[in-house]
Every structure is written in structure tokens, then in C-alpha cells.
Design a protein around this nucleic acid. Structure first.
Lengths: 260, 260
DNA sequence: GCGTAATCGGGTACGCTGTACCCGGTTTCG
DNA sequence: CGAAACCGGGTACAGCGTACCCGATTACGC
């Protein structure tokens, strides 16, 4: 992963790729590949075998071309990853997205949709992007979330605040959840097996008295599924946003930004 | 990054390292290094030069030893990373942590502390762990957060829900913020420069009509600093948790788990 | 119609990575 | 005082991203 990319043209090329600005030159043979096919192949590999299995050689092999041919379409692996990410973003909003619904329904859908997206493409949370991807897929998701907030008496900065809060919460929760799920797959050790094997060691640490509050927890505390934990916090967050809305309506809220 | 670790002893060794279970054997020369020094060197490199600069050779060079000597102390790079992560976690809770404070003060401190931690060690959010680290540092932070929730009339699962919600939110927000900050450093392009250079392209996309709500946003919408966005959402989340607390007290809440 | 410029496909090679394997020197026990 | 156990680390290998280069292919200008 070459993230030390000091080429100043890097970003421009990357955005051009994302937004399909490259027009075919007139001369020369026709390209045998498309960005679509390359990105799709990358996503398929990352989904099936994990992000570590993604290499330029592997993608090229999947497409039945020479490794260096990929560089005719993509400046480097970083840009390929950005294409893959924006492609994954395209599943939001889905066909089942509620339209013209109230803000809470929309944000809840966005949260659940992103959650599903992260579970379907765990590598989304394992990548270390140089800059958050600003491609068509990401824009569509953002615009949809925004559509639910337009009728509300908020400033634009507050609307962004609502979306950033939900997106941040989902990404953080999904990260924790996905890491736990990947662990089971990669090590071949299930959660139960993990606890039966290593419970004693951790229990010894508990009994040391260094973590009195954790030691006092009931046994089934960690038995709650990650998804349920996610839902619980999500509803709390939405409640908090609702409370802000009420306070803003009543004039008692500390507002964010000028008039929207 | 070798994450395809199918060795079933991997986890055990890793936890043993984290909890310092390895007793010195009687025979043979004394080790010239310690896990502490190795982890500290790794953290120093990752902080200063980014996670991509972290390699076994680089760490060994930093310590003035041969590359392979590290493998006398650490089974592999993955375990080194776990040591580094738990070491970073140790800064939470800090010396300024409020003790015996109300739950909101404690959770707010946890959130801000984790935020500071992620900004100080951005690589924490770029790592793809096999399993969330369960070392002494992480436990101490968890126990502290828990301490603020003990007096509340909640089930243990709800207490976990509170902490998971805050931790998740902070991690997600910090991830977005850190990626943006790293981008500026790595590409040498400031945020302003980015927008002046690539604003036109994105503006063209806006004017396409595909993103009507985003296009209608006022110009200063994205001018709000990431930290302020973080604070805004955090207070909303804490408000939502407070609302749940009130509802639980009033018996109108949908509870999580059995009796705590 | 044809020379030529431009582009595509991709082979070779370089410097980097994690780490398996092995050997020699050092320490301590029986 | 052997012998067992352990430390340090050199060598080597497979795999990575990609710089550089060259032959084949295409379409434009004349």
C-alpha cells in the first residue's frame, strides 16, 4: 500500500476516474478493459478472499490480462481502491429506500443500509484512504440522507451534523462488529471457542482487582449480539437528534452555524 | 500485513504477550530487549512516519538490532501491532480523568479522551485487526467508562450498550476526521487548495441535477471544523442516552437484557 | 494508400516486504 | 564439565507495487 503519494496530480486523476472524465483518444487500438470491469473484479476478490488478497497481479489474473495492463486504466492501486469503494457505495440508497418519508425513517434507513453495506464489504473499514472518497456513489447516498432533512427547520450545517453523526456512529459500530466477525473467519476460532480457551486468562486478570467494575459484570453481559447493540445505540442517537429538533423549534437549542 | 493467520495458537500467544504471561526461562543468555521497548519503537515510527513505514526491518533498525531478533520476542507483525495498540490505549483514562463524577461527565471524558487518542495515533484507525484487542490498556479504559455507569438503574447489557454507542460514535467520527487530516499531509495539498482545484469538477456534478439536495446546500456548509461536528453529535448522543435513562426510570423504556 | 503519431498490451526488473530456516555464541543446570 | 536451552541474527524465498521499455495495433494527415 503506497500511501506516501506526493504526486500533486494524484487527486485530480483519481477524481477524474471516479467521475468518468476521461474521453477516449481518437488514435490507437480500442481498450480491451473498462474501469467498471476492473473495479468489479477488485470488489469480487476483496469480498471473497479479504483485502489482503487484493493485488494488482491477482486482479489482472482474474481478468485474464497482464498485470501491467491495469496501469493503462488506473494510475495505481490506491486509485483502484477508490473506484472499488465508490462502487460499493452505490448500493446506497437501495431500491427499497423510502421516499418522501419523515427524517427519522430516512436516517434509520441510511443507518441500516450502511450497516448492511459494511457487513457485505468488510474491507471498506479496513482501507486506509488518503481522503474520503467523493465519487458518484458516495454523493448519491449523501444526497438521499439530505433529502430527509430538507423540510426540517435546521441550518445546513446542522443537517450535515445530523448525517455525520449517524454515519460516524454506523461506521464505528460496524468496524467493531466486522473486526470480530473477521477474526472468527480468519483464525478459524469461533466466539465460543475463544471464550472457553481464553476466558480463564482474562478471568485471572479480572480477579486481580485492577478492573473492579468489569469484574462485577454479570456473565451474560457480552452475550448481546452486535446487531442488537447497534440498534440500541442508533435509537438513542436518533432520540437525541429528535430532542435537538424539539429544542431548536422551541428556541432553546445551541445552534450550529448561521441561518439555513 | 498477514491477516490470513490460520494458526490456532496465534490468539493465545498474542494474549499471553499482552498480559505478560511469559516467564523467563532459566537457561540461556538474558534477553537484550523487552516487549516494552519494541512496542514503543513501533509506536514512535507509526506516529512519526505513518503506519506504512512500519516494518520489522524498520523497527529493528530503530532499536539497533538485527531484523530477525525481533522474532525472539514477538511471533509476527500482527502481534507487534496488537502490543502497539494496547500501549496506545493506555493513555485512557488519563491523569485528568474525573473520578466519582456523574455518568455524563464520565462518558464525555471517555469520548474526548478517545478522540484525542485517535488524533495522536491515527494509525489506530488504519489497522485491520483480526480481533479487537483485549489487553490491559483496553480493559482499563473500559473499566473506567463502566465506573461512571455503575450507580445508574440499568442492566449490565444496557451499560455495555451505552459504552459501545459512545465508543462506536467516537471511532467512526475520528476515522473520517483522521482520514481527511492524513490526506492533507500525505498529498501535500491543503483543504483549501483541494477545493479550489477540484471544486469546479464537483460543481459540474452538482449542476447535473443528480444531487438536488446537495446542490442546494449553502456554501459554508462544509466549513464547520471536524471537531465541532464531533462535539455536536456527541451531545446529541448523550442527550439520547439521558432520555433512555429517564424512560427507564419511568418504566416506559424498551429494556436491553434481564435484570442488572 | 501510406507514413506516422498515438495508444494498447504486457514482459522484465528493482526495491521493498514478512518470515522460515539455520548456525554460532552464551548462559545455566545436572 | 558436558549438555541442554536460549539469544542474536544472517541468508534466502515468495510475493508485492510499479518504473521502464518494446512490439503490435489503430486512425489521422497528406
Amino acid at each position: 500500500m503506497t500511501s506516501e503519494n506526493s504526486d500533486r496530480g494524484y487527486l485530480k486523476r483519481s477524481l477524474d476516474l471516479l467521475w468518468g472524465q476521461g474521453e477516449r483518444p481518437s488514435r490507437g487500438p480500442k481498450p480491451g478493459l473498462t474501469l467498471e470491469r476492473i473495479a468489479a473484479a477488485g470488489v469480487a476478490i476483496a469480498d471473497a478472499e479479504g483485502i489482503d488478497a487484493l493485488s494488482m497481479r491477482r486482479v489482472a489474473a482474474e481478468l485474464g490480462v497482464g498485470t501491467m495492463s491495469l496501469y493503462r486504466y488506473v494510475p495505481g492501486k490506491a486509485e483502484l481502491l477508490e473506484l472499488m469503494i465508490d462502487r460499493a457505495y452505490r448500493m446506497m440508497p437501495g431500491d427499497d429506500a423510502p421516499r418522501d418519508a419523515d427524517w427519522r425513517t430516512v436516517l434509520r434507513y441510511v443507518a441500516h443500509g450502511n450497516w448492511r453495506m459494511y457487513l457485505a464489504h468488510p474491507w471498506l473499514l479496513q482501507t486506509s484512504l488518503a481522503r474520503p472518497v467523493l465519487g458518484p456513489g458516495a454523493m448519491a447516498g449523501f444526497d438521499y440522507a439530505l433529502s430527509g432533512l430538507v423540510p426540517l427547520p435546521l441550518t445546513d450545517q446542522e443537517r450535515l451534523g445530523f448525517i455525520a453523526a449517524v454515519d460516524g456512529y454506523v461506521a464505528g459500530c460496524a468496524r467493531a462488529h466486522v473486526h470480530a466477525a473477521l477474526a472468527a473467519r480468519q483464525t478459524g476460532i469461533s466466539d465460543e471457542e475463544f471464550w472457553t480457551t481464553h476466558g480463564p486468562l482474562l478471568e485471572k486478570a479480572m480477579l486481580s482487582g485492577a478492573y473492579p467494575h468489569a469484574a462485577a459484570l454479570s456473565e451474560d453481559t457480552f452475550a448481546v449480539p452486535g446487531e442488537r447493540l447497534f440498534e440500541f445505540g442508533l435509537e438513542r442517537l436518533l432520540d437525541g437528534l429528535a430532542a435537538f429538533l424539539a429544542a431548536a423549534d422551541g428556541g432553546t437549542a445551541e445552534r450550529l452555524g448561521g441561518e439555513g
